[in-house]
Amino acid sequence: MDARAGVRLLDPPRAPVIASEAQLRALLASLSGVDAAGAEARAAKLATRSIKTSSKRAALDMIISMIDLTTLEGADTPERVASLCDKARRPDARDASVPSVAAVCVYADLVGTARARLAGSTVAVAAVATAFPSGRASRRVKLLDVEDAVAAGADEIDMVIDRGAFLSGRLGEVFEEIVAVKEACQHAHLKVILETGELVTYDNVRRASWLAMLAGADFIKTSTGKVGVSATLPVALVLLEAVRDFAESTGRLVGVKVAGGIRSAKDAMRYLVVVNETAGSLWLSPTLFRFGASSLLNDVLMQRLRQVRGAYVRPQEFSAD
């Protein structure tokens, strides 16, 4: 492994306590800028790594175990969510050696359905909350949204940050909101969606990552999947550098979730390479790295079955959801 990729953890952890907006601002301003051309070149370079045979087999299973199987449509029904849950628990009905996915990700009102259907499995229930995907609602409504989802049995909450406030420099407001949501989450894990496609620059992505981690995020997540630009490799690289640096300076491990537009096993494997080479192998685990995806699972299953059968398989082998 790359010598730079290992993290040296502080023991005991000591995260800075943010007492004022001025302190937060100063801390974020002290972060160095991102070398955009360098990040893109490094991501492109890592994307050329080729992973074959038994490593590929292991990577495919790892990807499955890291998937947050997601359905976030207005047309979702309890039946659709139930069938998605069955698929999450056992992705390939014919093959018990395929691992379960990490979680099922739904809107808050369908958490109850998912919770009941997943009883007795290792699959977690994640809910998007805080007026997903725009985040345009009052603080009170957002917190109620979160409390609702947690009460219905959500293990993980995916919140969106207020991009408008972040971009206009009201950092304290964004910070406080994350702190408040974290409190409303109680035992549930909090994933903070930065919506990197709307943050314009990599520097903003790095600052937003640190802001979210300082405010208590358990995961930082790239995108909602509802805007034009979703997860990209360079953005994932910036997030992974942020969690690595945060871990080194505070001792707290924060996870990364990439979401939106990752449809093929090949793409997903590229992310795994970037994870390993940036944050290190510690992050190659569903507790610290996730894929938010829906169609990705079928492509991974297809590649897996191809390895078993030795011939390319047809997409109809697997249910649409």
């Binding site: 059968r309 011939a311 390319y312 398989v313 047809r314 082998e317």
Partner: peptide
Amino acid sequence: ASLASHED
């Protein structure tokens, strides 16, 4: 062989 065995 790839074409003949391809299930799609």
